[in-house]
Design a protein around this nucleic acid. Structure first.
Lengths: 240, 240
DNA sequence: CACGCTACTGTGGTCAGACCACAGGATCGA
DNA sequence: TCGATCCTGTGGTCTGACCACAGTAGCGTG
């Protein structure tokens, strides 16, 4: 490993990470103030701010002005935002190919519904209201897609794996703008929406029936078909 | 969506992202200098630096001092580092449970070897030398684990999906310190290393034979067994 | 003309200090 | 007692100033 030149902001980052790891601070706790951290670590306040900015974007802390117990930098550990930002930027910078993002989403969705269908104590109560909300007429494609995202995320979170849920949320966000564009290119949106609705119902039914293989196949077809219609996939890649 | 108060550094981040998205800049290109960006966007240089710091940690740019074409902030789009940092910090802040990380890794490894075994044009040339290197005697557990990480990453990259490869690298990094600790708790390390070696060979053989189901089962057992021996997995997933 | 040294320029990295808006607590007054 | 006011500490931002560094242009020398 090449020795990194000791950069001041990295010092701060490592200090906070160490405090986290050693349990000195945890979710809900306040970090020391920027000025205090700067003094403690012997760096400038601007360097502290650069480190805190990183932590904020990654979803580890939230900052608030003013005084009182709710002000300052507070550890929150909400991964979805950071994952979304990371994946979105990497796609923008061509670090990630669009197709790989889609394939990965497929992979995770696949696993999520299969896991849900297998579990005895599955709880779809978070997904059902969204399913109903999508039945409302007069939804624009953007509104429909927002609900669709909400549904898939609800399923992921129901599966109980926060890492997978965060990754799926991130993957979704990363290609959101492309999906929006793709929706515009679909000639008969209302018909497509109807197809999506029934596919959703079928997926949930398969999960509810405890049939993982059916759920897998349905969700795979659901996503693949839609992306193909929206012109987001080049070829079907064999992954199974 | 709640309107965010316009923060200066966010302005910079969005500006760069827009340039990326619109193709005005891409991998290999230089960003405008910090002072120039500050002047163009009407913000202070410190705000520009906060945004660039985020981009750097996320693996979007690399910065270098000095002058010439290699200096300044250059778009690189290497996602592994950012993914690793994000996952590692989230685990540290308890945003991600250790078990979820392990389960997700299992999921991805599973898919990787199955995809590799299915592909006609699979290329394991990156993995084989690592396999041989692991046969060397006298490796410490840390050295062995480093090679192990390299092997799994090589397989992921061979599968061709950069997103999955980055995620696996990140997941691995996130739990690296725990894995190191776990290795110390294994009584007979040499015996364990021998088991791991033969499991690796078996996995690669299954891939080479084009047997995705066998590869899946082998890699799953490989990882599960090791984590169990290292005390990193709970026996049963309690969701309550 | 060729070569080597030097000074210059522009880059990121860092720090110090200043000001602002803000939110909560402390204080003081009616 | 209760209300309005002031005070304090917070993050957010900007400015200006250095530094180390690396490439380049220029100059001087042979």
């Amino acid at each position: 490993m090449a020795e990194q030149p000791a950069r001041a902001w990295r010092l701060v980052l490592e200090h906070v990470e160490r405090d986290l790891l050693d349990g000195r601070i945890g979710p809900g706790d306040r970090l020391a103030s920027e000025r205090e951290l700067a003094a403690d670590l012997g760096v400038g306040r601007s360097s502290v701010r650069e480190a805190l900015r990183v932590l904020e974007v990654m979803g580890l802390i939230r900052t608030a002005t003013g005084s009182g117990p709710q002000s300052g930098a507070i550890v929150i550990a909400t991964p979805n935002g950071g994952m979304s930002t990371l994946l979105r930027l990497q796609v923008a910078a061509q670090g990630f190919a669009l197709d790989d993002v889609v394939q990965t989403r497929l992979l995770l969705e696949d696993a999520v519904v299969a896991a849900l269908a297998t579990r005895e104590d599955r709880d779809l109560s978070a997904a059902l209201p969204v399913l109903d909300a999508m039945d409302a007429g007069g939804l624009t494609s953007a509104e429909f897609l927002a609900l669709d995202a909400q549904l898939h995320l609800a399923l992921a979170e129901s599966s109980g794996n926060t890492v997978v849920a965060a990754m799926m949320a991130g993957l979704r966000t990363a290609i959101e703008s492309y999906v929006q564009e793709g929706a515009a290119s679909i000639a008969n949106w209302d018909a497509m929406a109807d197809v999506l609705r029934s596919e959703h119902r079928a997926i949930v039914a398969a999960i509810d029936a405890g049939d993982p293989d059916a759920a897998r196949a349905l969700v795979r077809a659901h996503i693949t078909d839609y992306y193909t219609a929206a012109g987001l996939t080049r070829e079907v890649r064999h992954t199974h």
